[in-house]
Design a protein around this nucleic acid. Structure first.
Lengths: 165, 165
DNA sequence: TTGGAGTGTCAACAAAGCTGACGTATTGTG
DNA sequence: CACAATACGTCAGCTTTGTTGACACTCCAA
């Protein structure tokens, strides 16, 4: 190979390595969603409800438009999910204080309780995976994930991280 | 903190770190599927077709039952996808040589051509991400992903890796 | 006061998953 | 050989979650 970059091996960029990475993402994502899915299956909810609950918990008071950007779905699709969550008393929609066209979304006590159940299950798996792989691996994991995102997603992700801590 | 493990920091296992990891997976997966999805949207195919094509290419001659285990869907769901791919001449289904109940699945030339288009798009993004993050990060990335999988998925994944190279 | 942004909702539809039931080869076993 | 089990395909019906397109309402700002 003539294109070895300052003595550094580029074998990690071969098609075979990339294929393996792609398959790893596929199989890992299956595990990633499996635990919350099992909980949700016992209720009348699905993955879409989980996503909405997760991000409302993460950014309380977020607007519908903001949530649309994060979730990447149409407002009709989100609205259907949101409506059932509001009807069931898991989410509260308050008219915006400064701009009364906006709706600020909050989890109710019941919503927070469900969010905890779901994210506990998901975190348990992630914690086990992190522990097994070790802190160095986790840094690399996060680095590659961030590099995989669309620039717009990276911005939203960074904003959430700041507000989170 | 009293539970520091032989001087090692466990800060990477905090709930906040795990939440960030969970969100990173979510946003990265969006990017992961975005490019093939754009190509598929121009045809009458969806993500399910992509998955079938990917794994048939990866393990030529695979049986329907094996594909079901890999994809984790019902045979009715897979069959709908497979039928259109066979009708459109992208996949060939041959009666098994040793066991004539089985069907061995292969991509046709046209199937291989589509697989290449799709996985080129996906690999291009992964290659850019890998290059940006560096080889150390990629090792950690793969390590954590593998630890996130269900044991059964880990077995299937390992088997694919062996057969791949 | 008027245009446009933010929101909600109706209708219709599509992709892709599910369960349950049934039929047909084919194979392995008692 | 008879029979149970396996692999596959398919019909029917349902659910979740996404999509377009159209339309109405509220409210902000120029």
């Amino acid at each position: 190979m003539a294109d070895s970059h300052s003595g550094e091996s580029l074998l990690f960029l071969t098609d075979e390595q990339l294929r393996q990475g792609i398959e790893a993402v596929f199989f890992a994502y299956r595990g990633f969603t499996a635990d919350p899915d099992r909980i949700l299956a016992t209720m009348a909810y699905g993955r879409a409800h989980h996503r909405a609950i997760h991000f409302i918990n993460r950014a309380p008071g977020t607007t519908v438009t903001n949530l649309l950007a994060i979730l990447g779905v149409t407002k009709q699709s989100l609205n259907r999910v949101l409506r059932t969550l509001i009807e069931d008393g898991l989410v509260e929609s308050r008219v915006g204080a400064s701009d009364r066209r906006e709706r600020n979304l909050y989890l109710t006590e019941a919503g927070i309780a469900l969010e905890n159940r779901l994210s506990d299950a998901q975190r348990t798996r992630m914690r086990a995976a992190y522990r097994e792989a070790g802190p160095e691996a986790v840094i690399g994991f996060r680095k590659v994930l961030e590099a995989m995102m669309d620039p717009e997603m990276r911005r939203l992700y960074a904003r959430l991280r700041e507000s989170g801590q």
